[in-house]
């Protein structure tokens, strides 16, 4: 862990930690998208594309968040499913 001493300064945080968490916990497909964006941050920064590097970092975070959101949405749908089937079952037992 160090601040870089390169003349171009410190690259943006590539948000890889969120990509990893998303991949393992929430949604592997979107997590992978996030990882791919995170991998682009350093090379763009090294090429002098500072804005592109920041965009890649932001995209990495965005997709990790979408992965988490999709997991929450699926979770809500699951709860609804259980509740609906549960209620249906209660009333079906005549």
């Amino acid at each position: 862990m160090e601040t870089t001493n390169q003349p171009m300064g410190t690259p943006p945080d590539n948000n890889l930690v969120w990509a990893i968490l998303c991949t393992v916990f929430c949604c592997l497909p979107l997590g992978i998208v996030s990882i791919i964006y995170a991998s682009k941050v350093k090379e763009r920064w090294a090429q002098g594309d500072y804005q592109g590097a920041q965009e890649a970092a932001d995209d990495a975070k965005k997709w990790a968040i979408w992965g988490a959101a999709s997991a929450v949405i699926l979770g809500i749908l699951y709860v609804l499913l259980v509740v609906v089937i549960g209620i249906g079952g209660t009333f079906a037992g005549f």
Partner: peptide, 24 residues
């Protein structure tokens, strides 16, 4: 602005990604 150098290594990034797929 501390950065974790390991996270910027393409070897680590794609190695981890490959590991996750393999594990899956």
């Amino acid at each position: 602005k501390y950065r974790f150098k390991l996270f910027y290594s393409k070897l680590f990034i794609f190695g981890y990604f490959g590991l996750a797929i393999l594990y899956w």
